[in-house]
Computed example of a mutant assay.
Amino acid sequence: MRMLLNIRIPHEPFNTMVRDGSIGEVMAKILDETKPETVYFTEQSGHRGAVLAVNIDDASAIPSLAEPWFLKFNADCEMRIAMLPEDLMKAGLDKLGSKWK
């Protein structure tokens, strides 16, 4: 199942890691472990942020995706299930529409 992981990173400890040169290694380790399909780094409410698209087979995978961000950056993480257009086509919306008229 595809999930979007939305991450808001506070200024600290990220700033300290940038200053001491460790940020690249830490970020590479997290991304290597989580293996996102894609990742976008962006601003979120005045803070650093990232949006990752990841595939999970089971909800038990969620801690392994979120904990690195919590533990290394004190980040906030939001998770949302996401569908591709093909997934939406398989959802049976026509049947749901007639069921819930």
Rank of each mutant, 00 (worst) to 15 (best):
N15Q: 10
N15L: 12
N15H: 03
T16W: 08
T16Q: 15
T16R: 15
T16P: 10
T16H: 15
T16L: 14
M17D: 07
M17A: 14
M17Y: 11
V18F: 11
V18K: 09
V18Y: 10
V18N: 05
V18I: 14
V18A: 11
R19D: 15
D20E: 12
G21M: 15
G21E: 11
G21K: 10
G21W: 12
S22N: 05
S22D: 08
S22F: 07
S22W: 02
I23M: 15
I23Q: 14
G24W: 10
G24Y: 06
E25P: 00
V26W: 08
V26M: 12
V26A: 07
V26L: 12
M27Y: 00
M27R: 06
A28Q: 13
A28K: 15
A28R: 15
A28L: 12
I30W: 03
I30P: 08
L31T: 04
L31Q: 11
L31M: 14
D32L: 12
D32K: 08
D32C: 07
D32Y: 05
E33L: 15
E33G: 15
T34A: 11
K35I: 10
K35S: 15
K35N: 14
P36M: 06
P36E: 09
P36W: 01
E37R: 06
E37N: 04
E37H: 06
E37V: 05
T38Q: 14
V39C: 10
Y40F: 11
Y40L: 13
Y40I: 10
Y40P: 01
Y40M: 11
F41P: 01
F41I: 02
T42R: 04
T42H: 05
T42Y: 06
E43F: 04
E43C: 08
E43L: 07
Q44E: 10
Q44G: 05
Q44H: 04
Q44N: 10
S45P: 00
S45I: 05
G46L: 04
G46F: 03
G46D: 01
H47Q: 12
H47T: 03
H47D: 14
R48T: 00
R48S: 13
G49V: 00
G49R: 01
G49C: 02
G49H: 00
G49P: 00
A50S: 13
A50G: 11
A50I: 01
A50W: 02
V51E: 11
V51A: 14
L52N: 07
L52G: 05
L52W: 03
L52F: 10
A53R: 05
A53I: 13
A53Q: 11
A53H: 01
V54D: 09
V54F: 08
V54Q: 07
V54P: 01
N55H: 12
N55L: 09
I56H: 08
D57I: 00
D57L: 04
D57N: 12
D58I: 01
D58E: 13
D58Y: 01
D58F: 02
A59I: 04
S60D: 10
S60H: 02
S60R: 09
S60L: 01
A61N: 03
A61K: 07
A61C: 07
I62E: 02
I62S: 06
I62C: 01
P63K: 05
S64Y: 00
S64D: 11
L65H: 03
L65G: 03
L65E: 04
L65D: 04
P68K: 06
W69C: 10
F70H: 13
F70T: 09
L71N: 10
L71W: 00
L71C: 00
L71Y: 00
L71A: 08
